[in-house]
């Protein structure tokens, strides 16, 4: 197994863990962290797969940079919303009963 493939496999595992976290965890902060793990996994795959020939490809690097910016923005929005929810309800969880 080459190094690139190893990184990619780790990335996929991180992604899967992240998705599971976002979907299954209750606490909002944990879910936001899980989302970040998911994103990191994807970035790892992106960089790792493009490195198979041993030469770094600049395009995925640029993509990952853009992706990180997006992830930071999303995290910031999620945190702002979570804080607002905490101010309004005193809880950092999404209750089940507000769905119809």
């Amino acid at each position: 197994m080459t190094g690139g493939l190893l990184f990619a496999s780790v990335g996929v595992i991180l992604f899967a863990m992240g998705v599971a976290g976002v979907l299954l965890l209750g606490h909002l902060l944990r879910r936001i962290l899980a989302f970040n793990i998911m994103g990191s996994g994807t970035f790892l795959v992106l960089v790792a797969l493009a490195q198979r020939n041993g030469i770094a490809d600049p395009v995925p690097q640029a993509m990952v940079l853009t992706g990180i910016v997006v992830a930071v923005a999303a995290t910031a929005l999620a945190l702002a919303l979570a804080r607002r929810l905490y101010v309004l309800t005193g809880k950092l969880e999404l209750s089940q009963d507000d769905e119809e």
């Binding site: 996994g41 795959v45 993509m63």
Partner: peptide
């Protein structure tokens, strides 16, 4: 995005 990463890798 993961899909895109796999496509780009391929």
């Amino acid at each position: 995005l993961l899909g895109v990463a796999l496509i780009y890798g391929t």
